[in-house]
Amino acid sequence: MSKHDPVRYVAKNMRLDLALIAGMIEPRSRVLDIGCGDGMLIEHLFRTKGCDARGIEIDMTEVTRAVAHGMPVMHGDADQDLAHYPDAAFDYVVLSRTLQAVERPREVLRQMLRIGTRAVVSFPNFGHWRVRWQLLRTGRMPMTATWDRAWYETPNIHPCTVRDFFDLCAREGYVVERWLAADDAGRRAPWRRFPRLANLFGEQALFLLRRA
């Protein structure tokens, strides 16, 4: 059971993160939140925006908590379960701070934009100056508030930077409708027009994508 499952997701500061994500989602839309934890975002979207919001979560304790709270959440895995949904079943598919922890990030993004019209993706930015500085100064894998697990036990097997993500979107032909970089508390940082600065000073990034 869950104690044997690999720990896949970093701890989330959902309360702040969810406000930013919710800001990208239109009222009354159909939403799938992948890695929804105890369902805080889907409850928020249901109660404040009247969305038909559902979730997938890998940690069974969280799933049980969410369902026991009346939220439609199923036990599942971003890498395994998205393939079972039909095309365009959702208006938005959300992946919050989870992309870096999945086995096949590119395939997960493809599935998200197959089953959803739009994808909302947030991830911790490995290009942040503190990460770069630690690697440069000590020559060792960075340990920061965001990247807080040792290399041999981190679930974050696919770290990327803001620029890397822009590059992947271009390669895959995704349109970046909106994006922003924020500090770890979810406060928006003021570099939205300058990806290179955002890549240096943003601790996390949030993208709203659609197919071209």
Binding site: M74, H84, Y85
Partner: peptide, 11 residues
């Protein structure tokens, strides 16, 4: 899921 039904699933 394949018919986009509203489904909760707990083990």
């Amino acid at each position: 899921n394949g018919v986009a039904a509203n489904v909760s699933f707990v083990e």
